[in-house]
Design a protein around this nucleic acid. Sequence first.
DNA 1: CTGTTAGCGCATTCAG
DNA 2: CTGAATGCGCTAACAG
Lengths: 370, 370
Amino acid sequence: MAHDDTTRSRTPPRRLTIEDVATEAGVSVATVSRALRGLPNVTPSTRDRVQAVATRLDYHPDPAATRLAAGRTRTVTLAIPSLSGWYFSTVVAGAEAVCADAGLEFQVIAVPTPEQRNRLLDESQRLERRTDALILVDVTIEPHQVESLERRKVGVATIGSNIVGHPSVCIDDELVGQLAAEHLLSLGHRRFAAIGGRPEGPMSFDVPDARWRGFRRTLAAAGVSVDDGDLHNGNFSLDGGYEAIAPLLDGPHPPTSVFAMSDEMAFGALIACRERSLGVGSDISIIGVDDHEFSRVVELTTIHQPVADHGSLVARLLIAAMADAARTATTTSATPGASAHDVTASVDLTGPVRPVISLIERSTTGPPNR
Amino acid sequence: MAHDDTTRSRTPPRRLTIEDVATEAGVSVATVSRALRGLPNVTPSTRDRVQAVATRLDYHPDPAATRLAAGRTRTVTLAIPSLSGWYFSTVVAGAEAVCADAGLEFQVIAVPTPEQRNRLLDESQRLERRTDALILVDVTIEPHQVESLERRKVGVATIGSNIVGHPSVCIDDELVGQLAAEHLLSLGHRRFAAIGGRPEGPMSFDVPDARWRGFRRTLAAAGVSVDDGDLHNGNFSLDGGYEAIAPLLDGPHPPTSVFAMSDEMAFGALIACRERSLGVGSDISIIGVDDHEFSRVVELTTIHQPVADHGSLVARLLIAAMADAARTATTTSATPGASAHDVTASVDLTGPVRPVISLIERSTTGPPNR
DNA sequence: CTGTTAGCGCATTCAG
DNA sequence: CTGAATGCGCTAACAG
């Protein structure tokens, strides 16, 4: 009554190891290891045979054993202030897809506070053992932390900021501010307010600063002056946007236009305006940043950035950089001149990649009516 | 000239091992292992000493080695049709937070297609080696796959469906349909359309079916009949909602009310209505499901579900179930009667937990004007 | 209570 | 080109 014990039995089937494959294929484990990883020094015929057996047995090397023996984890870890929210989740999705494609495990960790950020980054020892590389999304990192990761050969790539010598994707945030200012200015606005970042909030990334600089500079060039009192904290959230704008609307001297540094904050502002029966696009103009999926639902004028590309782009850059590093390491210590013909990875992966941004004019902005 | 070589040198510092701690503390590695894991059979004084040394040295056990030796990975893997989108990312965020808190690594994998789903679930061998447990979010799983995972002691928990004997969180989807129908009915509507799931789309989960059943049943009880021709595919996306509703609006006999099975699809419907200058809440009523973060921005009437809790809840249930399983395993083979006093985990973790849902009436629904 | 020892599954020298 | 041997760092019996 022989039945397939490995699929029917109630007891856990013994996991098959490289040795099972070796025995079955009539070779040594070393050969199996080489064959399966596509290393040289294996006769094509034996390689094929080994691969056939492995496939038939449905063999997959144990990642833990591989890690322990080889020292590499084949996993990428992404750290991000939050996993929810449109921007963040879109970035995560992009990065995951690329990593999965590359056969890398994808781990993710939310670091909403500076404490958690440091707890993660200060333990490079721990990190090295868990991951081959780190993708930092709107997470700041200090020089000594970078250095520590470099020393431990942990790859690093960033979104929203950049580290010299490491791949990064970030838009020109000053330009964002400039485009917003130019648009509002061209419409005839002269009274502005801005809703921006979390000065004492969880993270301290410099995106909002740069946007504010660009905004302010452009206004100044047009002879309009704003000061830091015109910048309000909206925490990059819908509620934050609402809270930030409401008092202004109720105040004695409301702005005719507001630059919300994210669409989500702009949505909050929209609610506040509706509550007060203000005509958005006439009584008051609102411009956001992101081109959030739902911006067109409310016809929000905004500055588009290709968020979906951010994640996949860094992941690709990171993977290329890692491959590059690995190859350089072996190349350097083996055949110093071998890279002459190998221009494959000679694209520069260390400078920041700057996705193109553009103004999308919809109906929440218009000429001021007062 | 002694300087701290482990933090300054350009060469990777040799990672310190359990043996370093042992030597430094003057005990054996076994004792260090016990002490650090809080196992019994260690004198408090030595335990303290070991812990002090470990802390001072900033020692962290290598996860790969632990996995290999202990067989457990201390990682939880979450599989989900997509990582972006409000519902999904909110769930992910909740689960991650709980896992991180519990000291578990958190891996995530997108399975947009049935092929990818099967590729994941059919390789229980591979899965077992990578993760201790699986959280399935709106991902269907076949009985034999469940069995295979059970045999390999991989924990499983689900959201959006439930597997007997495993923890799960899912709302009463028939009730969702019923609430929507009752609301629309009470307003006086008699002509309905529904926008629902992806019949031939990537996933084949039964959420939309249940919602449709509840909707239809309630209507029938009120003497109104709808048929499958009134159910349109909106793919649970904004664009899908738009595409689904547009032709109806342009048709000869448009509905006075539409039940969108997700807020995102409702948003798409909203756009279509606006394009046609239809008064939403008067010319046509729209009700969604989710209570999406932005529903209040557009004043969408919807059926609220506590999405933020879903993720953290399953994660908690899963972790409890895993602890339970581990304890049962040891208990059973050691002290059969020991659990008499230990009622800690005797809450039932195997039945589905059903979060409370409720209708939130805003302004996109109202009495029909024709 | 503590130390010794034998693997966990694989990658990797080094001989052959 | 291939195989035998060593060790990655830790846990889990077992012996003291």
